[in-house]
Amino acid sequence: MSLMLMAVQSLNGLQLGILLFLIAAGLTLVFGVMDFINLAHGVQYMAGAYFAVTAWLLTGNFMIAVILALAASLAFGLLLQWLVFRHLMGRDHLDQVLATFGVILTLNEAARMIWGPSPLSLPIPEALSGSIVLMPGLLYPVYRIGIIAAGLAVALLLWLLIARTRVGMLVRAGATHAPIVAALGINIDRLFAMVFGFGAMLAGFAGMMAAPILAVEPSMGDNLLILAFVVIVIGGIGSVRGAFLAALIIGFVDTMGRSFATDLMKLFLSPSAANDVGPALASMLIYILMAVVLFFRPAGLFPARGT
């Protein structure tokens, strides 16, 4: 029974990790390549979810809705880049923090005005509804397996893009040696816009994937943004590989903590005390993990920048 729960929670952890990776990948690239801290990245996750819901309401088809929403996320990311972010390149981090904080306030409120404050939902498509038997006695929703598969596919695609293409090479070089890339006569602005749009699309994709299992509501991106920060700080800013590994670790630790901390505490404390302490401990777990990692490796697990 407990073993079964463990298996289910492992899959849930994997699935959270995948979502986190999709958000963190864009964030860490944008930071690594452009030295730009974008607090509004979580808003792009929210936007992706809302676009998907709206597109589904218009078309009634999940696949078409996802494709439309992907295009919308890309366009929206490029629009934000053109309107706001490109003016913040090379500016003080404090300026970037304040301006992107302004973007968050604006867009969260805009979402509240357009779609209302109450949560919307996106139904799971017919083809992916229901559960399948993974092991005797272990049922797992098909849709969640779909998320894991889609996320892994995107991670693979991203790896191919970064490791095997010219743009990917420039992005990698930009993360470590930005001035050299600029000196090569590469159009840095275009490269930035591309990375930006792509990052926004990835975050939006995560939002779409999450929409059927989580509530689509204003500010839904905020908490995931913080988790994504924890991921890229642990993984090493600018490192996609680090982000992937850290996202899986965080997804796993967080999920496991939430489901088992209370039971674990019951080994040491009275049941009522454990019920109080367990959840609090579970929610602190990943931050403690971050603190420990940073204490020993201040630049994260895979520092992208040479010292």
Partner: peptide
């Protein structure tokens, strides 16, 4: 009201 405050903040910074 935040829809006013947000853009205001962005403009001040920019």
């Amino acid at each position: 009201w935040r829809i006013i405050l947000g853009p205001l903040l962005i403009l001040v910074v920019l």
